[in-house]
Design a protein around this nucleic acid. Structure first.
Length: 666
DNA sequence: ATTCGGACGGCC
DNA sequence: GCCGTCCGAATT
């Protein structure tokens, strides 16, 4: 890597008269696919004083001034007539070679452009912050004994690997329980401490501000406040850039943060850890829609760093890595998991009664719910997880309750109200051509979804008139509850942190979550239930969880057994059967019909590719889904990128959106 | 003969 | 994307 302070470290050594002129290879900030390559510029002798590989420059490109990053310095160029750099914005190295390489890999993986990825990876410059010389954060203090990971099989071996500076990779399933066995943040701190002890840097990525606050507190306790930096958009431009610079300058060796922190510019990365990779906050909403789990995996391989994918739930993607042997599971046998976790029981849904009489609200809550609440309230707060209302588009079989799926591609169907009642539409193949028939049980009757659960609070308040009722949802989140008895109603993801753990939890309307018309509905439901369990005290302290729903649903059974790994195994098997990611490569293309047709055609020669659609999305936008075996993935993505390049080079009209293995198709 | 504009090629 | 250039058509 080029040292920012020594511009003399250049190809050919010290410049002298008669040397060929210095040339900078520049990643220009243009996101047109056909211009997604470096461009060469002359570096004037004056500019050579300040320029460095990885610094920001300003260049004239197609007549217009644009920002760029220096990818390399050299003394020769393939290109013909070169323009000089307009100016070196600053010699500060903000795009070191490993991150430039990573960004290129991410762009290629997702069929996007380097410029788009760099916009995600490098925060905007804040000149005043850059000029102000900053005190280096204190070196992380010794964290003492590792406390959490050694409680799990393979935990010690993983830590030993990190401490030895080796690129060990693992998937860690903490026990979904309140206390040390479920202390994901503690486990990440263990791994970071081992890495730092080996003299290497660590990056820890979490999905949201709540998780970051918790991790920050743990890091401050273990390493000392000010011995690490956080990277999150919420910091604002100045602080974000200050923290980014601390990492880039080698002052901060431990970085915590949300999504974009996966690109934190620490040198000699020894560990990259991701918590809760199933959380959709870790999927970037901007092109090319990279997922933190994939970026972290690419980065760990590219920089010979360790990787830790931690979560109470296990995604099919992580399961695929486990089965490939690419990551080692750190965990416990299911029986031991249950011994350390809360007791989980199922109460059958009383839905059939509800179907007959939608106003019979009392019938919605089984007797067991009240019993669980009563028992829990004797020793502390009880969490009641209430799914948000409004998943109105899901459709299931009346007979067996399985979500209705497309007979062609097995995608969950959605119901749309049409002239002749409920019309079934597949998001990949379009409206169902014939009448629907359940492949599981042969039933032809469909059941429409239920509406929400707005009266739960009132209802429970009436049943427990003396008890405090706390309500928390994403619009009005409550951060914390104390040890006093309370009924805490929360939507998934907005559960208040209990200071002493919940005495019990009740998970309502499990069926509602499972019937969501999404491919990952069951995986996502289990993830949310496990997150609730993780706030409940262990069985040994009386902790109990009651889930109300379909007793036989696979995700419900997995929860009862606290067996996220087993569930992921089945889930991945299902994805294989249905040829869905991560068992297949999916490229979803949306845009005007003629434009989208070009992508289908371009993917034709790729081995084993099938085409679904086009599906009308309205407003002259259609969707085509291209699917191929994972072995054809790079070729399929490359074909899509080539078609996008062809279109932009020819200036064909219409904007097209390309997504690779999208988390959700919508 | 001169000016204007729209399409197209190239962008270092 | 944006600019520059090259060509034909409209304008003097």
């Amino acid at each position: 890597m080029t040292d920012a302070t020594s511009p003399s470290v250049l190809p050919g050594g010290e410049a002298s008269e008669g040397d060929p002129p210095l040339v900078a290879e520049v990643a220009v900030d243009v996101s047109l696919p056909h211009l997604d390559r470096p461009f060469d510029y002359l570096v004037t002798p004056q500019q050579a004083e300040e320029v460095a590989v990885g610094c920001r420059v300003r260049v004239r490109f197609a007549g217009k001034l644009r920002d760029g990053f220096v990818l390399a310095l050299k003394r020769d160029s393939e290109a013909g007539k070169l323009r000089p750099l307009e100016r070196v914005i600053s010699g500060e190295v903000v795009l070191a070679a490993p991150i430039a390489r990573l960004a290129r890999q991410v762009a290629d993986h997702y069929g996007g452009t380097l410029a788009d990825v760099l916009r995600l990876a490098v925060p905007g410059r804040h000149a005043a912050t850059e000029k102000a010389s900053r005190a280096a954060p204190a070196a992380p203090a010794s964290a003492g004994e590792a406390g959490v990971l050694p409680r799990f099989a393979e935990g010690d071996a993983f830590l030993a690997g990190l401490a030895g500076g080796r690129p060990v990779r693992a998937s860690w399933s903490p026990v979904p329980v309140f206390g040390p066995d479920g202390d994901w943040a503690g486990g990440l701190v263990d791994a970071a401490a081992a890495t730092l002890a080996a003299g290497r840097a660590a990056v820890l990525v979490v999905p949201d501000a709540e998780a970051l606050a918790r991790l920050e507190a743990r890091c401050a306790a273990s390493f000392g406040a000010g011995s690490f930096v956080t990277l999150t958009a919420e910091l604002g431009p100045a602080a974000r850039y200050r923290h980014f610079l601390a990492a880039a300058r080698g002052q901060a060796r431990l970085v915590l943060g949300t999504r974009a922190a996966v690109y934190a510019p620490v040198a000699d990365l020894g560990l990259i850890a991701v918590f809760d990779d199933g959380n959709d906050s870790l999927a970037e909403p901007r092109a090319p829609y990279p997922h933190v789990r994939e970026v972290a995996s690419l980065r760990a391989s590219g920089e010979h760093a360790g990787l830790l994918l931690a979560g109470y739930g296990r995604t099919a993607e992580v399961q695929a890595l486990v089965e490939k042997g690419w990551v080692v599971p750190i965990g416990l046998p299911p029986a031991e998991m249950r011994r350390r976790g809360p007791v989980v029981r199922v109460a059958a849904d009383t839905e059939r009664a509800l179907d007959r009489d939608p106003d019979a609200r009392v019938a919605r809550l089984p007797h067991d719910v009240f019993a669980t609440l009563r028992a829990g309230l004797a020793s502390g707060p009880v969490l009641v997880q209430v799914p948000r209302a409004g998943y109105v588009s899901s459709v299931a079989c009346q007979g067996c309750r399985e979500p209705a799926r497309c007979p062609r591609c097995r995608t969950p169907l959605r119901g749309e109200r049409g002239a002749s009642g409920l019309a079934l539409v597949c998001r990949l193949c379009g409206p169902l051509p014939g009448p629907w028939r359940c492949p599981e049980c042969g039933d032809t009757r469909l059941r429409a979804p239920r509406v929400g659960v707005t009266r739960t609070a009132e209802e429970l308040g009436r049943a427990f008139p003396q008890t405090r009722v706390v309500q928390s949802w994403s619009g009005h989140p409550v951060a914390e509850v104390d040890a006093e008895p309370a009924i805490v109603l929360a939507t998934p993801g907005a559960e208040p942190e209990p200071t002493h753990g919940y005495a019990a939890a009740v998970l309502l309307d499990a069926t509602l979550l499972l019937e969501r018309p999404e491919l990952r509905a069951a995986e996502e439901a289990l993830r949310r239930w496990l997150a609730a369990c993780a706030r409940v005290r262990p069985a040994s302290e009386g902790g109990a969880v009651l889930i109300v729903g379909e007793t036989h649903a696979r995700a419900v059974q997995a929860l009862v057994r606290l067996d996220a790994a087993g569930f992921a195994e089945r889930e991945l098997a299902g994805r294989r059967e249905a040829s869905f990611p991560p068992a297949s490569k999916l490229v979803v293309v949306e845009g005007p019909a003629d434009a989208v047709a070009g992508f289908a055609e371009a993917s034709g020669p790729v081995e084993g590719v099938e085409t679904f659609g086009p599906l009308e999305l309205g407003d002259d936008v259609v969707r085509v889904t291209l699917r191929g075996p994972t072995s054809s993935g790079p070729a399929l993505v490359a074909a899509a990128k080539a078609e996008a390049s062809r279109r932009s080079a020819r200036k064909l009209p219409g904007s097209v959106r390309v997504r690779v293995d999208p988390q959700v198709i919508d």
